[in-house]
Design a protein around this nucleic acid. Structure first.
Length: 116
DNA sequence: GTGGTGACGACAC
DNA sequence: GGTGTCGCCACCA
């Protein structure tokens, strides 16, 4: 019934699709994903999807998704591997549970994917 | 069907 | 400039 493949799945799946598209060594924010999905104000919904991400998509690179401040808010949910450890493994520096040069590593799906 | 929740974001003070 | 509060939408009990 839906027109676009990105919205043909559940909202959760849409989030997973975008997160899965995050390139190596890049990070994005919940709000950026929410805006790409058309629900900019529902950034919390993205976080919720991530809450079950480890159940539906355990392979999902959720460690590349942080809040608008570049803070590793969801690191507490990461197990057994620390979120910071994974980011550093990709060349992203993390200081005080916060990504260094967050804007530099920021990857905006709206800009990068730009609905092309 | 209603209420509450949530890995957030923006605005107000 | 930092802290606090509200809003927001979709899912779960």
């Amino acid at each position: 019934m839906n027109q676009d493949p990105l919205i043909s799945e559940d909202y959760f799946t849409r989030v997973y699709e975008v997160v899965a598209l995050i390139p190596y060594g890049k990070v994005t924010s919940y709000g950026a994903i929410a805006r790409y999905l058309g629900t900019a104000s529902a950034a919390r919904m993205v976080g919720w999807a991530m809450n079950h991400a480890h159940v539906n998509q355990p392979q999902l690179p959720a460690h590349r998704v942080v809040n608008r401040n570049g803070l590793l808010t969801g690191k507490a949910h990461f197990f057994p591997v620390s979120m910071q450890e994974r980011l550093e493994a990709e060349g992203i520096q993390v200081k005080e549970d916060e990504i260094v040069d967050f804007t530099q590593h920021f990857w905006d799906p709206v800009v990068e994917l730009q609905f092309s």
